[in-house]
Design a protein around this nucleic acid. Structure first.
Length: 904
DNA sequence: AATCTGCATGGGA
DNA sequence: GTCCCATGCAGAT
């Protein structure tokens, strides 16, 4: 059994070791347990001992060792010989000397190191009980795959099991961390290394440590091992990780299990923490994740190799995992999805082996300026050093470029649990130019166990997640939602870089997760739902309205989930939306609207206008190069001419202009993006939203802030005259009046509809319309909602002509958007009407009886002679849709607006 | 005032 | 109901 270190040999080794390193230096006897020759004056070095020193051998043994024949010579009769599954060569798998001479196969059996390397699937046998991995002074045949990485990467000297301060201590780059860090941690071992004195000086630590350990052990990262006993007996810091899934489960002794019951039959005595003396009397055999990178997929297929007791879990999972220790405990969304490129990116050294550990999509918080990256708990506990103190410890992480970062790995107590974070990630995040939605990956670089942090931009992440999904010929994912949600994932645009992410970032910076994505199911906050999709569609329609093909380029039209997007071979240009048409003579022309007077001017079809264009720039028609000149188009012609989407964009542009105080400096998509985050009253948030729900200031009276979370806490009083309550009450009145009107004058109403068949623009309430002409009313009037009186159609019509008011529509009930959206539920209008009536009566009762203004109003406007009138909206203040309200404040008006033609 | 820090909250699984 | 975790938020700096 490969893993069963021959106990006899083990004892010999450990005997030698316990006789200490002295044996290697002071003893004159060859360290080889079966050799009693005297060392020479200059003893030659053999394998590495736990102390970090090298076994000193006599010349003969050293020569044999160097030739890689040590086991052949001295362990021939020992147990543990196996045959390489590939070349058939016999390999001794049962002693320290041969620790790196072979690699364990998941499917069972071993490969000699040569075959292992040749196949590039397994590194040196990281599956060895780490306590036995003495690898600094291996025969030449092993060295490249074993020890050198340790010293090189950790800077901790040749002994891998020794402290690797270079990995985790605060180092000189962050001296301030020193004081905070009583630990020295070797990430490769995954265990924090308390300086002995400090460890001892923390009485409660061990207790906490014990608290830590069971969970840790269950996660597999830590297992008591023997070498402390044999070696130091005091520090016990020589924790090693178990580099394989093979040992995960069986080597997860509960601390309650006695060390005398070494699981898995490993002939390594276990001890648990020395509770008696409070010392870390035992070094954990740290269970490292299976080091096999994705390259070794074939070896994951059969988890049962007789050694892999974690195969149970693996089988349960039914899927391979790059890391056997933690992955089975991780949510799939954290499963690393490294591509070979990722791995290559991380490891330029072809000899290095990357063990994907986990990955995480950056949340807005993670990518924000706070610099705290929330770590998935299980991942943190599985792959990061155990920490018992909230302060945690510094963690040295190398990025894919080799640059080292030091983060503070810590946790916060949270609901009897912990919340693990990496602090101080901002520089790294910025360095990588990551933003919310991008994916950071954590992997382990072997040998050396160095923690490596990679990343995938959202586009890459999307691509990688959607590997199996069809891409159209232009490389644009057919999944329009996420692609559209994140411009960075829109390859063409992203590639061009013409559309700065910032331009759209306010709307899309948050991770938009794909439906059905394992990464996307976690948080509703991050999830894009149908409503968002509608919003995005519209938004991108608008965006498309602003995109002009680059000169001499013709846009390809790409259909993504039913929506057409223009795609340009070259970078698109942000231009003023215009309307292309053909005049009576058949000449292609375009109509552009002046930013100042809003009159439409005829222009040649091939001209490209800046996003802000005025009559004065109309060099093509000198007669109309002034705003005072009359418009060529009649209102009627314009009405027929204006496409909805262009108008929407146009109007937004105009709205933006009129809101020049806030958005003066913004152009093109910036304007759109900022419009999208206009808050109540059309006020642009002071800072770009990094979260979907921007932080509000005290005193903020927006619908979000005036409501306690989840509707708890004090409610509005009946006499409350706040904006919201007034609006709600007004809408009640409106609804009531309408209902009465409709019920009592049904026929009259029908007659009126017939009398106004040519007014398809008759719409409801104050909802701005996305596609009305932008001429005329376009002011962002924050008082619009309040001041409006919707009791009559005239007012409705009037108010409806406002294209955009930059105001949250308080009548929006996001979760009902779908069913209420025009066209989506034409048959349900009456039902909704009934609902509204019921709710109204209910709320009236509530209002009159309790003064509680937790009002849910459903306001319904049945079609007024046209289906476009079927716009329903509702408000549920009780529910206080914090996120929804603030997430898309400026979008709501778009979503529920029925398209309508110009009203002049 | 801005930023940092530690914890609380609440939606979602 | 529990747990996770994104993010809010209040106090500290």
């Amino acid at each position: 059994m490969v893993f069963f270190l021959n106990f006899e040999n083990f004892l010999k080794v450990t005997k030698k070791m316990t006789s200490t390193s002295v044996a290697t230096s002071s003893s004159r006897i060859c360290f080889n347990s079966v050799c009693n020759d005297l060392k020479s004056e200059r003893p030659r070095k053999g394998w590495q001992l736990r102390t970090g020193e090298l076994a000193e051998l006599c010349d003969r043994c050293a020569s044999i060792y160097d030739e890689g024949r040590f086991c052949d010579a001295f362990h021939l009769n020992a147990s543990g010989w196996r045959t390489c599954e590939s070349c058939g060569k016999r390999v001794h798998c049962g002693c320290i000397v041969s620790a790196y001479a072979f690699a364990l196969l998941d499917a069972g059996g071993i490969l000699c190191i040569a075959c292992s390397r040749k196949n590039a699937v397994l590194g040196p046998n990281s599956s060895w009980p780490p306590s036995l991995l003495f690898n600094s002074s291996l025969p030449e045949r092993f060295k490249d795959c074993s020890a050198k990485g340790w010293s090189q990467l950790t800077g901790s000297g040749p002994a891998p099991w020794r402290q690797a301060p270079g990995l985790f201590n605060s180092s000189t780059s962050q001296p301030e961390l020193h004081s905070r860090v009583p630990y020295e941690v070797d990430l490769s071992t995954g265990i924090d290394r308390l300086n002995v004195s400090e460890r001892l000086s923390i009485p409660s630590l061990e207790k906490k440590k014990n608290e830590d350990f069971p969970e840790r052990l269950m996660n597999g990262p830590l297992k008591p091992s023997a070498h402390d006993i044999h070696e130091n007996g005091n520090t016990g810091i020589n924790c090693e990780e178990q580099h394989t899934s093979c040992l995960t489960k069986p080597q997860l002794p509960s601390l309650k299990e006695d060390s005398s019951n070494p699981p898995f039959g490993l002939a390594v005595p276990y001890t648990s923490i020395d509770e008696a003396n409070g010392q870390m009397g035992v070094s954990g055999t740290h269970l490292l994740p299976n080091p096999q990178p994705s390259l070794a997929k074939q070896f994951h297929s059969n988890p049962h190799n007789g050694l892999d007791s974690s195969g149970e879990t693996q089988m349960r999972n039914g899927r391979p995992r790059p890391d056997g220790r933690g992955r089975n405990q991780l949510f799939p969304r954290y499963w690393p999805r490294f591509t070979d490129q990722d791995l290559q990116q991380i490891s330029a050294d072809s000899n290095s082996i990357i063990t994907p550990l986990f990955e995480k999509m950056l949340s807005a918080s993670d990518a924000g300026r706070i610099g705290r990256l929330v770590l998935p708990k299980k991942c943190a506990e599985a792959y990061f050093p155990p920490i018992s103190q909230p302060e945690g410890l510094p963690l040295k992480v190398q990025d894919s470029k080799g640059k080292e970062w030091i983060f503070q790995f810590r946790f916060w107590p949270n609901n009897n649990s912990r919340m693990y974070v990496l602090e101080g990630v901002t520089p790294c995040i910025q360095n990588m130019q990551l933003q919310a939605g991008d994916v950071v990956t954590f992997s382990r670089l072997e040998p050396g166990g160095k923690l490596v942090m990679g990343f995938r931009k959202a586009s890459a992440a999307s691509a990688s997640e959607q590997e199996n999904e069809a891409k159209n010929s232009n490389g644009v994912s057919t999944h329009g939602d996420a692609e559209l949600a994140d411009p960075s994932s829109w390859s063409k645009v992203d590639k061009s870089g013409y559309i700065a992410k910032e331009a759209l970032g306010t709307k899309v910076a948050v991770p938009r997760k794909r439906k059905n994505s394992v990464l996307g199911s976690k948080s509703k906050r991050l999830r894009i739902d149908n409503e968002d999709m509608i919003e995005l569609k519209l938004t991108w329609e608008e965006a498309q309205g602003l995109l002009r093909p680059p000169p001499n380029h013709v846009a390809n039209v790409v259909s993504i989930e039913g929506f057409e997007f223009e795609e340009y071979e070259d970078a698109p240009v942000l231009g003023k939306p215009t309307i292309f048409a053909t005049d009576k003579s058949g000449e292609k022309i375009q109509w552009a609207q002046c930013e100042d007077c809003f009159k439409w001017r005829r222009l040649p079809s091939d001209v490209l206008l800046p996003s802000k264009w005025t009559c004065s720039s109309n060099s093509w028609d000198p007669e109309r190069s002034s705003c005072s000149a009359t418009q060529e188009l009649t209102a009627e012609e314009l009405e027929n001419l204006l496409p909805h989407c262009n108008l929407a964009a146009s109007k937004k542009m105009k709205a933006a202009k009129q809101e020049s105080e806030n958005v003066d400096a913004l152009e093109g998509l910036d304007t759109l993006a900022n419009l999208a985050i206009l808050g109540e009253g059309g006020v642009l948030p002071a800072s770009q939203a990094t979260t979907k729900h921007p932080r509000h200031r005290p005193g903020c009276s927006c619908i979000v802030c005036i409501q306690p979370p989840s509707g708890k806490g004090p409610k509005h009083k009946q006499t409350c005259a706040c904006n919201v309550c007034q609006t709600v009450k007004r809408r009640f009145r409106t609804l009531m009046l309408r209902r009465e009107k409709k019920q009592s004058q049904k026929e009259a109403d029908a007659t009126r509809k017939k009398q106004q068949p040519s007014l398809p623009d008759k719409v409801v309430d104050d909802e701005p319309l996305p596609c009305t002409t932008s001429a005329g009313n376009s002011s962002l009037n924050p008082e619009k909602v309040v001041s409006e009186n919707l009791d009559d159609d005239t007012n409705r019509l009037k108010s409806s002509s406002s294209p955009f008011k930059g105001q949250i529509d308080l009548n929006i009930q996001p979760e009902r958007e779908e069913e209420l959206s025009p066209g989506s539920d034409s048959g349900g209008t009456m039902r909704l009407l009934q609902d509204a009536t019921d709710k109204y009566h209910r709320q009236q009762s509530i209002l009159s009886s309790s003064g509680n203004s937790n009002i849910e109003v459903t306001q319904t406007q049945p079609g007024s002679g046209t289906e476009l009138g079927k716009i329903n909206s509702s408000i549920d203040l009780r529910a206080s849709h914090r996120d929804a309200d603030m997430d898309h404040p400026a979008i709501f008006p778009i979503k529920t607006f029925a398209p309508t033609s110009a009203t002049g």
